[in-house]
């Protein structure tokens, strides 16, 4: 499959990237348009005649957008740390140790990743309501673990499996204990995998909508997805602010993805034994 690409290939790539990125590009350009150019005849011009930053100012002044960002970050980061930590223990056991019932537990984990969130929503809502945890960070972290923990276990088992067993066995032969083997041999080799898992778990928690919509209805605890979806203006849909908010959420993500895509890919490949 290693073959140098030709000119037509690059032309195709340019078109391809344009199609994927067009919505972002258009939203980015629109975010600088004043209201008069967002609606009516000028709505389809590429570049604003009178570019303005008002939409961005409005997002942070008229809407508690900064607070949404803070809430989303705290909730997603806590969820990620908890689920990746517990998942790495479980995944190590599942990938390396010998015990009965392994396939049952793997099957169970897999089926839990397939659970429709709507099927757990009403009991979780009732329980959180009784515990007084609706409209709190904990109230969202708890259900988010349902989503990210099985996912993390699943990804990590695959990663741990790709680490050559020979290294571990020679460590055992040299008399290393289970924890020593994990710390000195497995963990360093699994770092790219754990990192990838953390990114995926973070994104899953950051993007979640259904629980966030249901459990944190208070303005002070809303997350970014729910916040943006509820932007509403006095007379019409505030497209300018929506575009600006989308840009604010997307730009850091683009940067993160640009940096981390290499790590994701190296994480996906470095664990496997070169044959």
């Amino acid at each position: 499959m290693e073959k140098k690409a030709g000119v037509s290939f690059y032309l195709f790539l340019i078109v391809f990237v344009f199609v994927i990125m067009f919505p972002f590009l258009w939203v980015f350009l629109s975010s600088f348009k004043p209201p008069t150019e967002l609606y009516g005849s000028q709505a389809f011009n590429w570049i604003a005649d009178h570019p303005t930053l008002n939409n961005y100012v409005s997002v942070f002044v008229d809407y508690p957008f900064l607070n949404y960002l803070k809430n989303s970050f705290i909730i997603a980061a806590s969820t990620t740390i908890i689920s990746v930590l517990f998942a790495s223990f479980a995944a190590y056991a599942l990938a390396r140790l010998r015990f009965r019932g392994k396939s049952v537990i793997l099957g169970l984990t897999l089926s839990v990743t397939m659970f429709p969130q709507i099927s757990t929503l009403s009991p979780i809502y009732i329980i959180l309501m009784h515990l007084g945890l609706t409209n709190s960070y904990t109230g969202l972290i708890i259900p988010y673990i349902t989503i990210t923990l099985p996912l993390s276990i699943w990804i990590l088992v695959t990663f741990f499996r790709k680490i050559p067993q020979e290294l571990e066995e020679s460590a055992k032969m040299d008399g290393a204990t289970l924890m020593q083997t994990y710390r000195k041999i497995i963990f360093p080799l699994a770092v790219p995998g754990i990192f990838t898992t953390a990114i995926l778990a973070f994104i899953a928690a950051w993007n979640e909508y259904l629980f966030a919509l249901t459990i944190n209805t208070d303005e002070a605890y809303k997350t970014v997805p729910v916040g943006i979806s509820m932007f509403s203006g006095q007379y019409s849909v505030p497209w300018g602010e929506i575009c600006a908010a989308t840009v604010v959420v997307t730009v850091p993500l683009v940067i993160l993805v640009l940096i981390f895509q290499r790590r994701i890919v190296s994480g996906l490949t470095s664990g496997s034994v070169k044959e």
């Binding site: 997805p225 943006i228 979806s229 929506i242 575009c243 989308t246």
Partner: peptide, 10 residues
């Protein structure tokens, strides 16, 4: 990578 709700809004 971007939230589904945000892309739906977009």
């Amino acid at each position: 990578a971007i939230p589904t709700a945000v892309s739906a809004m977009m």
